[in-house]
Design a binder for these strands. Structure first.
Lengths: 134, 134
DNA sequence: ATTGACCTTATAGTTACTATATAGTTTTAA
DNA sequence: TTAAAACTATATAGTAACTATAAGGTCAAT
């Protein structure tokens, strides 16, 4: 199949597919005489794997690492679990950070109503106060 | 004061200060004869304002917008509140997304223990399954 | 013959810095 | 006094993961 069909069947842009190829995440496919890329079922699976990892917000570097592990199926899989644990820790820490942020923003927002002048805006005052350091 | 002292007093890098100047967030200061930038108290406040906004993860574009509002203190402040509401909505939506992610990752992680071969790794299998689409 | 849909490469833009290179200036210590 | 350390300046490239744009070649159908 050509790049457009691969793109549609996995749900990514053709540009992204070429980008993954350049980055070494997707093996370079054969070409037709006219230079068009020809993909196989194996490419579909490989790209779908990348897609699933990206949905989980794994980085391309992490995906690369996972692909290296896939090439050595008789090694112990601890490294894979560790990679996932690290990513999970990162996601959890980000959630915590954003929850703190949400509280700060909510409290800042509560310090103003819509019908003041900018010169008296509680939000702007809050942002201008030294107390709002961290 | 010179750039290094401004940087230390607000807690940003000197490079970042020059970057903000190029981006139009910080007004270009006067220069000494040798070309060194000379900052005043007003610059300290302006930079501290930017810093506080950045801690709340407002974008530079949003900070720019806030600065424009500051220049017109007799306009109604509704636009400022709207800007904050939009940002808050964005933060909340990101939290929700990450919480979904966290659940998916936790469940994927639970499908493996540390002492298998990569060929039997539950995590890798989970990532390779079509069911893990979205 | 030309329109439209597809494919190709190369290059630049996005965000908010951060790092590097190269060089001039000021301050401090020997 | 001189030499090193610390500071300043500019310019340019790198980061992450695409996304957009430009300029052009290919193919099927009208």
């Amino acid at each position: 199949m050509r790049i457009g069909q691969l793109a549609r069947s996995v749900g990514v842009d053709t540009q992204t597919i070429r980008f993954y190829e350049r980055e070494g995440l997707l093996p370079p496919p054969d070409r037709q005489d006219n230079g068009y890329r020809i993909y196989t079922e194996r490419h579909v699976e490989r790209l779908a794997f990348i897609r699933r990892c990206r949905i989980l917000e794994l980085s391309l570097a992490e995906i690369h690492e996972l692909q290296r592990y896939q090439g050595a199926p008789h090694q112990p899989c601890r490294a894979i679990n560790t990679l996932l644990d690290d990513h999970l820790a990162h996601v959890r820490s980000r959630i915590t950070d954003l929850q703190v942020l949400e509280k700060q923003l909510t409290s800042l927002r509560a310090s103003c109503n819509d019908d003041r002048d900018i010169g008296a805006c509680g939000v702007l005052e809050g942002l201008s106060e030294e107390s709002m350091q961290q």
